[in-house]
């Protein structure tokens, strides 16, 4: 770890100010991604701006047909929220299967989405439910948010404040964990609701993406069998020592069916 200045602002506005005035400022949420890279000297921020002192960023509300989750809400709090479980059970169980208890007790939804790890779980839910990302300056539709490998629509200095998920009729998530990291090697989130029928895939590509052929099939017939024979092209999918692109493409099919089965 290199030395840095530490700040703990009490409002989003102050955080934004600190961030813009720092030469190499970084927001700190749960630190589960950021701190390891800092410790390994792969990241060298001049200033760390800890969002932990800002009130109201870690609230969970269900209102107007939407689940609104503050950016600083821990994975464990989403997993343990009765309100979330009642409204979108798949979202609660997704959060409950992120990492291990220590990670879930520290890691936040805002941090996960800002980071946009290709193997992270939340992106599948955000895209699969057609959620909206709220920042300190605007709202961003899920479809416009994920841009590439660790790349999002966030501008430099922009801070995620909340994510709102329209409550679906049905939703399900199936994760095939990477055996070593237990991140998603392939995760598929399926939903039918206000945002239409959606199939979102994480882990397999540079960032979360929608599987449109499966969406069309499920729109006609919401059943696992409707996905029979629908293939995903392995072109552009990730390939590593744990799984080739071809294997991931195959797993998308298997996980999509399991997600539909889980959604009921």
């Amino acid at each position: 770890m290199y030395n840095f200045n530490y700040h703990r602002p009490s409002s989003v506005a102050d955080a934004a100010k600190l961030l813009s005035s720092a030469s190499e400022g970084k927001l700190l949420a749960g630190g589960q991604t950021l701190l390891p890279t800092i410790k390994q000297r792969l990241n060298k921020p001049s200033d760390l701006i800890d969002l932990g002192g800002i009130k109201d960023l870690n609230t969970v509300k269900v209102e107007g047909g939407k689940v609104v989750i503050g950016a600083l809400t821990r994975h464990a709090d989403v997993a343990g929220s009765d309100a979330v479980r009642k409204a979108i059970a798949a979202l609660a169980s997704l959060a409950g299967a992120i990492g291990d208890p220590a990670v879930r007790n520290r890691g936040t939804i805002g941090g996960s989405l800002a980071n946009s790890d290709p193997a992270a779980d939340y992106p599948a839910a955000v895209l699969g439910l057609g959620a909206t990302i709220h920042t300190n300056s605007r709202t961003i539709a899920a479809d416009d948010y994920f841009k590439g490998l660790f790349e999002t629509a966030l501008n430099p200095g922009e801070i995620i404040t909340a994510v709102s998920f329209p409550v679906p009729e049905k939703a399900g998530y199936a994760k095939f964990p990477n055996p070593a990291s237990r991140y998603a090697m392939v995760g598929v989130f399926v939903a039918k609701g206000p945002a239409g029928v959606r199939v979102a895939v994480t882990g397999a590509g540079a960032c979360a993406f929608r599987q449109k052929a499966m969406e069309a099939a499920l729109a006609k017939n919401w059943s696992a069998a409707a996905l029979d024979g629908i293939k995903t092209s392995a072109d552009e999918l990730n390939s590593d020592i744990h799984g080739s692109a071809e294997y991931r493409a195959h797993l998308i099919g298997v996980m999509a069916k399991r997600a539909v089965a889980a959604a009921g």
Binding site: P179, A180, S181, D240, I241, H242
Partner: peptide
């Protein structure tokens, strides 16, 4: 070494 951490070396 491609399996240089617990992210890739499966215990």
């Amino acid at each position: 070494l491609l399996t240089g951490s617990f992210m890739d070396y499966t215990m």
